[in-house]
Structure formats: C-alpha cells, structure tokens
Nucleic acid binder design. Structure first.
Lengths: 239, 239
DNA sequence: CGCGTTGTTGAAAGTGATCAATGTCGGTGG
DNA sequence: CCACCGACATTGATCACTTTCAACAACGCG
C-alpha cells in the first residue's frame, strides 16, 4: 500500500507551495512575508472547510483530494471542481452562492486571506502572476465541467467520473487499474447530479458489460478502460 | 427606440476598453503599446468568432451582447457564459473543447493575442491585475452557471433565462418589462441545454400561468416577475 | 448476533427528447 | 393586394431515461 506523507507543519506545506507555485527567482523577502501570512488547516475526511465566509481566501491544497462544492438552500452539495495535492484555488466569500471546500480524504490546506495578500501583490508581480495562473486554470476546468454537466446521460457521467478518478488517484494497485473510491454512493451521486440509485444502477450496468469490476464496496477495477472511455462520450474525462 | 452607437473604429473601441479596465494612472507608454496590439473585429448577429484557434486571446466586448459557447463533436453549442458591452474575457485556444464567441446581436470585439501581451505584462503589473480581475470575474460567473446547470428543471431554466435576459437587455420598453429576444427558440434551447419543443412548451406553460405574455415571436412581456422568479427556483438569476 | 448504515434491485411515475403534424409570420413575386 | 413559400413556432403522441418509492441484501460495528 502506498503511503503518502501528509504535510503536518505550516513550513512543510509552505515549502511545497513555494516549490510548486513560486518561481525559483522569487525574492526571499516576498517568500518570507508570504510565509508569515499562511495558516495551515487540517481537514479531516468528509469535513467541510470553516473559514471566515465574509472574506475571499487563496487556498493551496498541500495534500489530499478535495472538492469545491456549492451549497444550495436545502444544504445539499453541488460539486464545482476537484482539487488535488498541489492545486491552488480561490475560495470566494459567500455571495449568491455559498462555497465550501470538502476533503474527500484527509487533507491539509494552506490558507491565505486574499485581502492580506493585496499589498504584497502590488510590490511583487510574481504573486499576481501566480494567482492569475491558478485562476485561469480553475476557469478552464470549470468551463470544461460546465460543458460536461450540460447534456450528459447517467452512463456518460459515471464512466467519465471513474476515468477522471483514475487519473487522480494513482493510489492504485500495481496494475494501475484498481482504484479505491473514498466516497459513498451518495457523495458520487451529489458530484454527478444524479441519485444514489441511478449511480448504483450504472455501476451494475458497467459491471454487466464487463467494463469494471467491483471487488468491494469501495474498490473499482477498470477492466476495460478503452471501452469505458467510449461510454464516457464525446467530452471524455473532465480533466 | 433606443439607439446605441456601435464602436466602429479601433480607437473608439480601445478608448472604451481603457476607460473601463485600465486604471487612470496607467502609464501612457503601456496604453500606447496596448493600442498597437489591439485589433477590432465586427461580429454580425449570430456569427461565430473566427480567431486563430491555436492561440489564446484576450477579448474585450466593446459593444453588443455575446455568448461564449463550447462546441461539441456534433457541432451543437453549449452555452458557457454571456458577455455584454464592457466585459472582458479569455477565449482559450482549442483544447479538449472548442470555444467560440457568438454575437447575439451585432457586436464589436477588441482582440489581443494573449502571447503578445506577455512581455507587456512583465513590465506593467497593472495589466496583469486587470487580466486577473477579468478572469476571476469569469470564474465566479461560470461557477454560478455550473451550479445553475446542475439539477434544474426545464421550467426553472426558462424562467431564470428570461429573468437574466431582463437584466441584460434593458433595451426594454418604457414599462421595463417587455424584452425583445433577438434569439430564435433554437438558440435559446442550445443555451439552456433543452430542445426547441421543450422551450416552446415552457413558454406556453408560463403564458398559461399568466407569468409572461408573448405579443410577438420575439417579444416577451414579464407580466409577473415575482412569481416568475419563484418558478426560477432556489438559485434564481444566474447573475 | 442484532442493528444501523450503505448498497442494490424492482416497479411505477415523471420529465424531457424524439417524431410527426399543423400553425403562424414575414417576405417575394405575380 | 394577395397567394405562396420557407423558416420558425407550437402542439400532440410516443418513447427513453431518470427519479421516486419501496423492499431487500450486504457489510461493519457494538
């Protein structure tokens, strides 16, 4: 079993952040100031972030897969995007919608108050560039996701969900095909905008077609990724 | 009838762009260089942008309502976002999806090659900030749209479409309730991920409920915006 | 072992898509 | 001015798919 060391200290997380998102030539003073503004939050599995909802935040996902969800009036979640160790995102303050970050598995987050970064940005364009890059990446993924949500059948959604999970969770077995979904059917259903029953039926259908195998409740083996991709439809893996 | 003067020259469009998106204190040299990189494109009603699909572009919508669409394999459009006079957006090169800008009514676009802007960005952080601001705004709207698309019924989609159109097209009559949709039912259907027939039925239904009136093929009178908003559901107007 | 949670399966109902026919508007040419 | 044409819109009937409601099975845990 693979064992990924979680980032446990602010400094570890920050170093990871700097290595990933700050150019090598970034001025030491900037790095120093940034470090002072960072705070580390550990988010246990399935737990929702609880930051100050009146402020925007820049969040670096130091470790662990997470999802950005929108909460509707009924409190049910609608997935907006997935993030993984190394990704950076803007978590907007509560406006028309309330957004939260939810840990799919235990995650560590490095959090910056967006407002506090502003003075730094003025002096250090690198920071601005970094944020712009992250925002643009998020925009691209969100647009792709939007298209995906538009007109897709349950089968297409489930198939492409499995494929995108495979990319993410290379936490796979040696064969690179078996993945462990750390999510209940309900969570998957919320992600895909379907019901639990439909998700379950799609799993059964794909199993009957011989495209996947489900040795246990949480494990899925992609027996035939190629034909699975065919089921995922035109706009295949929502990257 | 209101008569909005379209931006016809590059300079007119550029001035509008600078006024809207560049801070007053922007260095004259920067403005000058930017102007040299801008090119103007007039997009007739319903026409699709035809820029170099291998390059990213920064587009300023100088005038006219436009929509950003994703094209699927079948060539049918899936709406991603609306833009209006004054908005700025990143039109990404063709990747997993192909995006196009489509004029809802005749529009003028000021187009920059994103690559060509890069050297300018390095020297002028203002430019970077501007792009970051636009990207972030686009991200927020797209996220909102994604949530909207998630699990919404045909009625909700049509009702909130009408409401958001009202916000946009204040090209309304004196009463502020009658709007002229410069779109066919097919275009509306594509926007909402529905079929023409379903859209038509929803119009009929809302008309029967007394929420709207349809004096002509293109005109819609929102007789009862409040109850219409109720039909639009929890995540009302997709801003 | 029993119980609660989670997952699967079946039957019925609801919703939108598809297919097909008809209706309406706007323009063109007689 | 009117008849006709073609594009667009509406309406109806049917079909496919997803949800909903309900029962049951499997697993994990005390």
């Amino acid at each position: 079993m693979r064992f990924e060391r979680a980032a446990v200290t602010v400094n570890e997380a920050f170093d990871r952040f700097a290595g990933q998102h700050l150019p090598a030539g970034a001025p030491a003073a900037l790095v120093h100031q940034l470090r002072a503004l960072a705070s580390l939050h550990s988010l246990p599995r399935r737990q929702m972030s609880r930051f100050d909802v009146t402020r925007d935040h820049l969040v670096f996902v130091a470790s662990g897969p997470t999802k950005l969800v929108a909460l509707d009036a009924a409190g049910s979640e609608q997935i907006v995007a997935f993030q993984f160790g190394g990704d950076c995102l803007i978590l907007p303050r509560e406006g028309l919608h309330a957004y939260r970050l939810v840990a799919i598995r235990a995650a560590s987050l490095l959090v910056f108050d967006a407002e506090a970064l502003r003075p730094l940005e003025q002096r250090a364009p690198v920071l601005n560039e970094m944020i712009a890059r992250c925002t643009l990446a998020a925009l691209q993924r969100t647009r792709a996701n939007l298209v995906a949500m538009g007109r897709r059948s349950a089968t297409e959604r489930v198939a492409s969900f499995l494929l995108s999970m495979r990319e993410i969770e290379q936490v796979a077995q040696a064969d690179g095909r078996t993945l462990t979904l750390e999510m209940t059917r309900k969570e998957i259903a919320d992600c895909l905008g379907l019901t639990v029953e439909t998700v379950s039926r799609q799993f059964s259908k794909l199993r009957d077609l011989g495209l996947i195998a489900t040795p246990s409740r949480t494990q899925v083996r992609l027996s035939d990724p190629v034909r699975l991709a065919a089921q995922a439809g035109a706009f295949a893996p929502a990257a």
